[in-house]
Computed example of a mutant assay.
Amino acid sequence: MIVLIYILAAIFAPAIAPHGIDESQLSQRLAAPAGFGGDGYILGGDPVGRDLLSRIIYGARVSIAIGVLTTLFSAVVGVLLGAVAAYYRGPLDAVVSRIADFLLAFPMLIFAIGVMTILGPGFWIIILALTFKSWVEFFRLVRGEMLAEKTKEYVEAARALGQPGWAILLRETLPNVMNPVIVVGTLRMGTFIIAEASLSFLGLGIQPPTPAWGSMVAEGRDYMLDAWWVATFPGLAILILVLSINLLGEGLRDILDPRLKAQ
């Protein structure tokens, strides 16, 4: 329900947000939230007098979009490469596996910082940088599952019936390995949201005036003693969303994993 609320808030942000993302009032500069001495904005004002609540709502668009798109692109690349490499083996499997091992040596955030330092900040650059590193996990997962599936009786039966390799791969084996992919994708989505917030916090992610939770936290770190709400509320937005996504992923794992069902 919490994840759904975030998604709906992101979709209908123009209708929900009380103010525009660049609408500022100097009288509300660093204004306290309602209930903490403030009489204007619900969650207070930022250093230039903009409504913090409105910018947090619009910031959900950036975080959710990057989390979903990065997960989708990483899963598509990793699943296809892992399935083909495991089913056909040979040089393709060896080359792609060595590339995957090489990319695993780099921490995600360090790798993304390096890519964005070269290519520059931007929405699609963030997705490219995270996808280029994150397809490896889906590749290794699907490759391992596919190696086990290709030896089972239903695959041998499909071969005996004369089905071509691509048909067996797409129709028979691939659907049977998608449950763990869904679980891993859900869990990794929270990681991608944190990675985007970290890059924006460092100034390498989404650039102003587009609201992003990471850059909002960075704006408020200089005012923690006098205006704690500027950094605290965007940070809480990240915390609640990522925690909810992780709990959702664990719930999907319990539902989709037949071994856990038996337990």
Rank of each mutant, 00 (worst) to 15 (best):
R140L: 13
F132A: 15
F138V: 03
A158H: 00
L141P: 02
R143Q: 07
A129S: 14
L161T: 14
E145D: 13
N176F: 04
A129T: 13
T131D: 09
V155M: 11
L174P: 05
L147Y: 10
G162P: 14
T151H: 09
V181P: 04
P164G: 15
I182K: 01
A129C: 01
L141K: 06
P164C: 08
E145N: 08
L130A: 08
S134F: 04
L128V: 14
P164M: 04
M146V: 04
R159H: 10
V177E: 01
W135L: 05
I182H: 00
A167P: 01
A148Q: 15
V177Y: 05
K152Q: 15
E156P: 11
F138P: 05
G165K: 06
A160V: 13
E149F: 03
A158N: 05
S134H: 04
E153N: 09
L170G: 13
A158K: 02
A158C: 09
Y154C: 13
R143M: 02
K150C: 00
R140S: 08
Y154V: 01
M178H: 11
A160Y: 00
Q163V: 06
W166Q: 02
S134E: 15
E145H: 14
G162C: 13
Q163C: 14
A160S: 13
S134D: 06
G162W: 02
A167L: 05
E149G: 01
R171S: 06
R171Q: 10
S134C: 04
L170Y: 11
W135V: 02
F132D: 05
K133P: 14
E172R: 05
V181S: 06
M146N: 00
V155C: 05
A148M: 08
W135G: 07
M178D: 05
L128T: 14
L170P: 10
L161S: 13
Q163F: 12
K150M: 08
V181A: 07
K152G: 10
A148F: 08
M146R: 11
T131N: 08
L147K: 12
V136S: 10
E156D: 12
Y154H: 15
K152R: 15
G144K: 06
E156G: 12
Y154D: 00
E145Y: 06
T151M: 13
E172I: 11
P175K: 10
M178R: 00
V142P: 01
V181R: 02
T131F: 09
I127T: 05
R143D: 01
L169H: 07
E137M: 11
I168V: 10
M178N: 02
A158I: 00
F132Y: 07
T151S: 12
L128E: 09
R171G: 14
A129I: 07
E153P: 02
I168M: 07
A157Y: 05
V136C: 08
Q163W: 10
F138N: 04
I127E: 08
L170D: 12
K150T: 01
K152I: 12
A160M: 09
I127N: 09
G144V: 15
P175Q: 07
S134K: 02
T173I: 06
R171W: 11
E153M: 15
I182W: 00
